[in-house]
Design a protein around this nucleic acid. Sequence first.
DNA 1: CGTTTCACCGTAAGCGGTTACATCACCGTA
DNA 2: TACGGTGATGTAACCGCTTACGGTGAAACG
Lengths: 343, 343
Amino acid sequence: MATGREIAQLCGVSVATVSRVFNQPETVNEETRDRVLRVAKELDYRPNESARALSTKQSTMIGLVWDTDHRRPGWRHPYLQDLLIGLKSALSAHGYHLLMLATGGDAREVGASLADPVGYVNMTRRHHLGGLVLIDSGSDAEAFEAFAQSGVPCVALDVAVDGPRATYVTSDNEGGAQSATRHLAGLGHSRIATITGPPGNQPAQARVSGYRKALRDAGLQQRDEYVVAGDFYRTSGTVAMQRLLALDEPPTAVFAASDEMAVGALLAARAAGLRVPEDLALVGFDDIEIASVVDPALTTVAQDKPGFGVAAAKAIMAMVTGAGREEPVILPTRLVVRDSCGS
Amino acid sequence: MATGREIAQLCGVSVATVSRVFNQPETVNEETRDRVLRVAKELDYRPNESARALSTKQSTMIGLVWDTDHRRPGWRHPYLQDLLIGLKSALSAHGYHLLMLATGGDAREVGASLADPVGYVNMTRRHHLGGLVLIDSGSDAEAFEAFAQSGVPCVALDVAVDGPRATYVTSDNEGGAQSATRHLAGLGHSRIATITGPPGNQPAQARVSGYRKALRDAGLQQRDEYVVAGDFYRTSGTVAMQRLLALDEPPTAVFAASDEMAVGALLAARAAGLRVPEDLALVGFDDIEIASVVDPALTTVAQDKPGFGVAAAKAIMAMVTGAGREEPVILPTRLVVRDSCGS
DNA sequence: CGTTTCACCGTAAGCGGTTACATCACCGTA
DNA sequence: TACGGTGATGTAACCGCTTACGGTGAAACG
């Protein structure tokens, strides 16, 4: 790896000039600029990122806070890969990289976890990160708030945060749930239940609210026993469905707040001898891979998965370059009609 | 963020001593060491990573080469999330972070892609990365070889590479395929076909070879028309299955080299009016989420998904600290018997 | 008691960039 | 001719840390 000094010597200029060629090209004479650029290209010169970061207090990296093995070892993000693809490609358009911050660590590293946002914030300073992208890992809204208040630019996914340099991106959860429920009502169902996500989870709350709105719009009765809590996981869907089926007047249609729970509900229904969609209509949320594969294929509310990453990248880059905060981004959802509701 | 100098002043020592406290504790007097440590803790001191990397030419980061939008926009790694979980947690045990290298980029960044390994290699030098983890993204074995030869420590996933400081980790693909096929033969099937992965792909080749071995061991006839090529994707499984069903003597059992293709085959069989497993036995490979959800649940060969990440992390860390190369790691597979083969 | 040894610590030179400031040639103007 | 302005470049300090080297005082030695 050639250094700036080498370029300088070969060109008969000072290192300052070499640096200027790359950072303030307009301030250097065209002729010498070309000369420097030519030599630089010849030697395949790339400025050393550590040195540059040290000197400018700015690296070309964005930190990713993605807490795994938290309370729930089996936790899986429903569409992490698509999210990363979007994030990565959008960041790379700005020449930025994604640093997956490690939590825990050995003696040298004092641990950083969502329980200790300070650790992460320190890391962003130590590495001169431009900012942080926070992936929702359950219901750590409080921790996210601490990040947002820390002053480092950060964008949270699926958690509404507020702070001097913080914003968030999320789906139109309410709208999506509403259209799902409306779809069910439109098919003639009047006994429509919902299986919700965990209580503290914001998207979960929004989806319940969308469900309620749709019922109201359709002039349908809202029954408390038709709203049963799950945790986004499959088995909770099964349990919830069993509970619903045990009611005196079981629902004929169910909106599950996640595809995983919808699948769980499907299994429960099947075990109870019910046919889907004939005896029970089912809608999910997320449109993960599984949705199109189960039998019957799941009608569901699709989220713009790579769009999440792209929006996050845009927001964080905007905060890195400009000052101040960005507006929250609400991504549209789309109802994907398959076979689990009949026609 | 406190700096070393501040600590030094508060303790009445020089910055050198502060540095020594953290890097060669045994060379500094116990009393002053404690004093420094106490003040450092008080100020929540963490050495600046950029400065340290600049000075030592070693960062605490490992690069991740994960090429997406290559030739196949729809490409998805079957278990990226689990892999990352394993990788991240194992790296964090050493205090290392994972840097997702961006490909492409703006004018400032000359692009790096698998087509241009030099770009990545340059990045690892610029960022003083400890090494590179290469995720297989189809069939770029040649490109991987270039990485391996570059001299930077790197471990490839699912591609056998060789180089001065390179190694790889992969599953026991042959063994897995063999046990899957043996399972089919054990159930009494004699007309066993296979749907393979893309020709250039090493795991795909190993799986075919395992399939062949099992047939031979079982004393079964090998027919060329029973080996039809897919590309690991679902639709290719459907197409392949259709081809198999069109044969004069269609197989009664199929080993698909990926779960996705197995699902595709399942759809084709169902469309042709065949029942699975009664009319057709089916085994997949990977044990992705979908496998347990399709109806009938898919019998498949499970890979140790987080183990991949952990093994990769161990290998790369071993090469970072020690010199020289590491032995390749072959992870065991496990046949998961579900419902798609009957009993 | 002079000299060696050794544990401990400070000095200072990097690492490879960025950038405030100084320098200098050259121009137009009074 | 003297002068201020301007564009192009060099000088050197600095970012925060590591580390080779040298210095110091006390203990050990002859």
